[in-house]
Simulated scan of single mutants.
Amino acid sequence: MARVLMYTTAVCPYCNNAKKLLAEKGVVPEEIRIDTQPQLRQEMMAKSGQRTVPQIWINDFHVGGFTDLWALDKAGKLDALLAQH
């Protein structure tokens, strides 16, 4: 199973939707909460070029946010990404 890393905040509905979609796939992401560790927002922005959450990586592939994750699933590509080691 792939390593899934996600930068999140507690009150973000898109973060919750991403976690729900991943849970349906049997995946629990490694979460980095930037609301409780605000210094990590800079790290997230440097890695992704984005300011918004969630920011999701599957292994070394930067997926983007929830809508990008959802689009991968609808295109039938998410399961293959999650199956990679």
Rank of each mutant, 00 (worst) to 15 (best):
48 S>D: 13
7 Y>Q: 08
74 K>N: 10
65 G>S: 04
41 R>K: 12
64 G>S: 08
40 L>Y: 07
6 M>N: 07
83 A>Q: 07
58 I>R: 01
78 L>Q: 02
28 V>D: 06
25 K>Q: 07
81 L>P: 00
40 L>K: 08
17 N>I: 13
23 A>D: 01
72 L>K: 09
22 L>R: 00
51 R>S: 10
68 D>A: 03
17 N>H: 10
46 A>V: 15
39 Q>C: 11
15 C>K: 10
73 D>L: 05
60 D>Y: 01
30 E>A: 04
4 V>A: 03
59 N>G: 09
56 I>C: 05
55 Q>A: 00
30 E>P: 14
85 H>S: 13
84 Q>Y: 06
57 W>H: 02
56 I>P: 02
49 G>L: 04
71 A>I: 05
20 K>H: 08
67 T>V: 14
1 M>Y: 11
4 V>K: 02
33 R>T: 08
18 A>W: 02
11 V>I: 13
40 L>N: 10
43 E>Q: 14
85 H>Y: 11
62 H>M: 03
16 N>H: 15
51 R>W: 09
5 L>W: 07
30 E>M: 15
83 A>P: 02
8 T>S: 04
10 A>Q: 15
22 L>T: 05
45 M>L: 13
49 G>M: 08
60 D>I: 04
76 G>T: 03
79 D>W: 05
57 W>Q: 03
77 K>H: 11
15 C>Q: 01
56 I>D: 05
47 K>S: 12
43 E>W: 09
83 A>N: 06
77 K>R: 07
42 Q>P: 12
29 P>H: 02
2 A>V: 00
78 L>C: 08
80 A>R: 02
45 M>P: 12
42 Q>R: 08
66 F>W: 11
72 L>M: 12
58 I>N: 00
79 D>Q: 05
46 A>M: 14
21 L>G: 03
10 A>V: 10
78 L>Y: 09
8 T>H: 06
1 M>W: 15
65 G>E: 08
74 K>Y: 08
61 F>A: 13
57 W>E: 03
26 G>M: 00
66 F>E: 09
21 L>I: 00
50 Q>K: 07
56 I>E: 10
83 A>L: 04
42 Q>T: 13
60 D>V: 06
48 S>K: 13
76 G>A: 09
20 K>R: 12
10 A>F: 06
20 K>F: 03
18 A>Q: 05
78 L>R: 09
32 I>V: 06
5 L>T: 06
15 C>S: 04
4 V>R: 00
84 Q>I: 07
63 V>H: 01
42 Q>H: 09
43 E>S: 12
81 L>K: 06
5 L>G: 07
63 V>M: 04
57 W>I: 03
24 E>V: 05
81 L>C: 06
18 A>P: 00
4 V>L: 03
59 N>E: 08
32 I>L: 09
34 I>L: 02
10 A>P: 10
45 M>Y: 13
30 E>F: 12
14 Y>R: 01
26 G>L: 00
4 V>Y: 02
43 E>H: 15
74 K>I: 11
79 D>L: 05
36 T>E: 12
71 A>V: 13
51 R>F: 12
47 K>Y: 11
35 D>E: 02
45 M>C: 14
52 T>R: 14
63 V>E: 01
53 V>I: 09
45 M>N: 15
53 V>M: 14
46 A>P: 13
83 A>G: 05
77 K>P: 01
62 H>V: 05
31 E>M: 02
33 R>H: 07
23 A>I: 01
82 L>P: 00
